[in-house]
């Protein structure tokens, strides 16, 4: 069994936002209109946080997807088991089971969950470009980054048909694929030879809000050491 995880190298991230765009188009994430943004109801499964500090030459950027915690706080509070920790370490969200109570949204320390306040709309010319492998979420359910687990399903089916294990690099989310500086690494944290577990073992590695004990599977690499 594998345990999927992501390593983001903050020294390489330039804050270009291509991961955010790729994520939106891969996962049919609805576009936010200006009134939503004003009400802090904008949607983005992968947000880039800009951190400006005095005495530091340039702004720092922190790409923040769902952390896919090993002890997920959202799963603890869901009354209907609409969000679950899967066997392969991905925290999944089952939209048809969600009742929209937003406990999970409030309990997530990383604010990685988003509630659908309206029925999603896209401009007419974008409707043809929606991904058929991902369902369109209705009004009133919570959604979040899934590490593109629809890709994992197709890769697993393919590997199963060919009677082999999943190769390294075969399954990767859309954000990793488009990153122009290759700041995002993705792989199996349980395999000691994978790139992610090697990077996660270096002394540059840290996790966001580590002291909460949520054991996130998104690991950052410090910019300077």
């Amino acid at each position: 069994m594998s345990k999927w995880g992501m390593v983001i190298d903050l020294a390489a991230c330039t804050g270009c936002s291509s991961c955010t765009v790729a994520c939106k188009s891969e996962n049919n994430v609805p576009l936010s209109d200006p009134t939503d943004i004003e009400a802090s109801r904008s949607f983005s499964w992968l947000q880039i946080m800009k951190i400006e500090e005095e005495g530091h030459g340039r702004a720092r950027y922190l790409p923040r997807p769902c952390m896919h915690c090993d002890h997920p706080l959202c799963v603890l509070v869901c009354p209907v088991e609409a969000t679950r920790l899967d066997k392969d370490g991905i925290v999944s969200q089952i939209y048809d089971r969600c009742i929209g109570c937003r406990y999970c949204t409030n309990n997530c320390p990383y604010t990685a969950k988003y509630f659908n306040w309206h029925t999603p709309v896209w401009p007419e010319e974008m409707m043809q470009g929606l991904n058929p492998d991902v369902s369109i979420r209705p009004k009133g359910v919570v959604e979040k980054c899934t590490f593109c687990h629809h890709r994992l399903q197709s890769v697993t089916d393919q590997a199963g048909a060919e009677k082999r294990e999943i190769r390294e690099g075969e399954f990767s989310p859309a954000c990793k694929e488009v990153c122009p500086t290759q700041a995002i690494h993705f792989g199996d944290l349980e395999d000691p030879n994978s790139t992610v577990s090697k990077l996660a073992g270096t002394n540059r590695a840290f996790k966001e809000l580590e002291d909460l004990g949520t054991e996130p599977k998104v690991i950052y690499l410090r910019e300077d050491f």
Binding site: R84, K87, I90, S92, D133, V134, S135, Q153
Partner: peptide
């Protein structure tokens, strides 16, 4: 022999 482990995670069919 076919190495069958039917998955039962919700996300197997619902995504």
């Amino acid at each position: 022999s076919y190495n069958i482990h039917p998955r039962q995670d919700c996300s197997t069919c619902h995504r």
